[in-house]
Design a binder for these strands. Structure first.
Length: 513
RNA sequence: GGCCCGUUCGUCUAGGGGUUAGGACAUCAGAUUUUCAUUCUGGUAACAGGGGUUCGAUUCCCCUACGGGCUACCA
């Protein structure tokens, strides 16, 4: 069986795509590209009640942002179009009917109340796992228990019904999972799953098997939450006569909360102050805000790299990977089995790494744009120089302007605590001297500035460490920052002197003893 | 509860019958720097527990504990 590798990412449009979903998509993509195959995007919108407008667009945009290119899917079409299950509605029915004809499925007419009563009855009888199964189905209203003519009559009368899979009573279902090995499940632990809903839509179980078969999917790579229903899907492939071409399964470990228990959720994100969604999203119904990695200043390359290594590793000590390198190195065999806790610190570290790779020219453009957006006037300073100075100090792309702000806005007031610890009348005197020397300096270069500062400080017998923090405070308004000499060089003579004058006049000279 | 999956430093993980159990993030200390940051050097830190199998188990098997997932006419 040497088929072209075809994988799919099949989210349902019920809201913003979760970061775990992004990882699933990424692994699918890496696997497909590694084997020169195709990546499909299929929208599983069979639950009309949960449909959320805009969610599908969000999914596409998120995948594009992260760098995943779709070969076939809703937006671009393809040989198996349509790729939206709601538009494929007419396809599923025939397969459900084939199942019924072969005696592998049946019509069921039970109402919600009747199902509820059954559950209560079973619970009262202390049945361990109450479900609609090979035993209980014989007490329910379905085409197995009702006379044929009554079934026909009900169908003809348009009574609501569902189609349920007739799960065999005693059968060992074996499933080979690419990451977990053989998984064995007994059919008695599976219930008679609904295949077609009363609204005429298929459930996930049917739709997913039919579509995967029709779209010639070779590998189903999805989250571990699907593992319990995978045997059911195997059963479906068998009943539909598609066992030979059944895709291989790989169930991915889940992304867990940072502090231990459970699947990563929006709550964790809000509590921890970090995103778990790729892009910002505002729920159209509730107005709730979901923050995205993109808007928080994370680079797509960093998120891709971070995500790739959450649950997979190349077996080498390489940490930084481009998408192409990931594709080259990826293999399902190296996916780990255990769930991975989501550690935002690692994401930040990756972000920092990728931020440093951005050329200064590009970052300078970013800075300009951000200043314009913030309506901060920016004079003719050399943006590239500024950016190269602050580059190593920031984690987020979106923070460039914050770190550079003091270049464009001269300090108006001075933090009293900083003044108390760093300012002194001796320092102020030196600064005044330094100002004069600076005024006489013709070539405003960092090294020259350093020389004259040393000269003025030493001539008064004061250590440079005493005066520099004060000078920094005067010029930038802060007591920490990049190399002061380089700052002065960028600011230029006039601006520096103006700032010194302002500080000298506005900082209280009296030093508490 | 039932079924399924899992368990190596705080976190992501490598490894695998005999290793000083390796790396990265985080953390701590030192060095460099005019400060913070960066960078460099070094340190702390892990095989869940109990039984087997074996000359030897963290590695293989079983049990227990713990964690997770599923248990809808949701995906």
């Amino acid at each position: 069986m040497n088929r072209e590798v075809r994988v799919r990412f099949a989210p349902s449009p019920t809201g913003p795509l979760h970061i775990g979903g992004v990882r699933t998509a990424l692994y699918n993509y890496l696997f497909a590209k590694k084997h020169g195959g195709k990546m499909l995007l299929r929208i599983e919108d069979t639950d009309q009640k949960r449909f959320v407008p805009g969610a599908e667009e969000y999914i596409s945009e998120a995948l594009e942002w992260i760098g995943i290119k779709i070969d076939e899917g809703t937006q671009i079409g393809g040989p198996h179009a349509p790729y939206r299950q709601s538009e494929r509605k007419h396809i599923y029915r025939q397969y459900a009917e084939k199942l019924i004809a072969d005696g592998n499925a049946y019509y069921a007419f039970d109402t919600d109340q009747e199902l509820e009563e059954m559950r209560k009855r079973l619970e009262a009888a202390k049945v361990v796992a109450p479900s609609y199964n090979s035993i209980t189905r014989m007490q329910m209203k379905n085409s197995l228990t009702l006379p044929d003519d009554e079934v026909k009559r009900k169908l003809a009368a348009g009574e609501p019904y569902v189609i349920r899979l007739k799960v065999p009573r005693k059968e060992e279902i074996r499933l080979h999972d690419l990451v977990r090995g053989w998984v064995m499940v007994h059919s008695s632990s599976i219930d008679d799953k609904v295949l077609m809903k009363s609204d005429g839509m298929p459930t996930y179980h049917l739709a997913n098997v039919v579509d995967d078969h029709l779209m010639q999917i070779t590998h189903v790579i999805r989250g571990e939450e699907w593992l319990p229903s995978a045997p059911l899907h195997v059963l479906l492939y068998k009943f539909l006569g598609w066992e030979e071409s059944m895709p291989q399964f790989a169930h991915l470990p889940l992304l867990l909360k940072p502090d231990g228990n459970g699947k990563l959720s929006k709550r964790d994100a809000d509590a921890g102050g970090f995103p778990v969604f790729p892009l910002d999203w505002k729920d159209p119904q509730t107005g709730e805000i979901y923050m995205g990695f993109r808007e928080q200043g994370y680079l797509p390359e960093a998120i891709t790299n971070f995500l790739a290594l959450l649950g997979w590793n190349p077996g080498t000590e390489q940490e930084l990977f481009t998408m192409d390198e990931l594709i080259e190195n990826f293999s399902i065999e190296r996916i780990s089995k255990a769930g991975a806790k989501f550690d935002i610190n690692k994401a930040k570290w990756f972000n920092q790494q990728y931020l440093r790779k951005i050329p200064d020219t590009e970052l300078a453009q970013t800075l300009k744009k951000q200043l314009e957006e913030k309506k901060i006037p920016h004079s003719s300073y050399n943006m590239e120089k500024i950016v190269s100075l602050i580059k190593e100090r920031i984690v987020f792309h979106s923070d460039v302007w914050k770190e550079a702000l003091f270049f464009f806005i001269a300090p108006q007031q001075f933090d009293p605590e900083s003044v108390r610890t760093k300012w002194s009348s001796e320092a102020a005197n030196i600064i005044a001297e330094f100002k004069k020397a600076l005024n006489n300096l013709t070539d405003i270069k960092a090294e020259n500035i350093k020389t004259i500062l040393h000269q003025t400080a030493e001539s008064s017998g004061l250590k440079i460490g005493k005066v520099l923090p004060a000078l920094r405070l005067a010029i930038t308004g802060a007591i920490a920052g990049p190399d002061l000499m380089a700052i002065i060089e960028i600011l230029g003579k006039d601006e520096t002197i103006a700032r010194i004058n302002y500080a000298l006049q506005n900082i209280n000279h009296k030093i508490p003893t």
